[in-house]
């Protein structure tokens, strides 16, 4: 355990912040650009996982366990959200036979 902490601390904190920001931005752009609902959900997962990584890095650098506990909360709630989200996508697919976000344009005005 000690070596893991030392390994993580071996990399400067700024690198973690930069790396996580890049992954987060990829996720954000994915949600905005892609049209397939499944891929949009994957992009959202990417955003959440970059946060998990960032929290772990901060947690090690602060020497405080709270950040890592928070990661478990994020994992649990992300799983709950994905369960509901996939159910919604299946429901939409049954009605429209498509998972393309452009099919959703009935509500306008």
């Amino acid at each position: 355990m000690e070596t893991i902490v030392q390994n993580i601390q071996g990399v400067p904190l700024n690198h973690y912040i930069l790396f996580c920001s890049i992954i987060f931005t990829i996720g954000v752009m994915g949600v905005l650009i892609r049209r397939n609902v499944i891929i949009i959900m994957m992009s959202v997962e990417l955003m959440l996982n970059s946060v998990n990584l960032l929290l772990t890095a901060f947690s090690v650098h602060h020497g405080d366990a709270a950040g890592q506990v928070f990661v478990f909360f994020i994992m649990a709630l992300a799983a709950a959200e994905v369960a509901v989200g996939l159910a919604i996508i299946v429901m939409v697919y049954r009605n429209t036979r498509s998972v393309d976000i452009n099919a959703l344009n009935r509500l306008r005005g």
């Binding site: 928070f70 959200e81 996508i89």
Partner: peptide
């Protein structure tokens, strides 16, 4: 269909905004 569309839009936007919330919280924590 309208109800389906509302649910999917609400879900996608809700999950998206949760991502921002979490990144904000992580930065405050940092």
């Amino acid at each position: 269909f309208a109800s389906n569309e509302a649910a999917l839009k609400y879900f996608l936007m809700g999950a998206y905004s949760t991502g921002f919330l979490l990144f904000g919280i992580a930065l405050l924590y940092g």
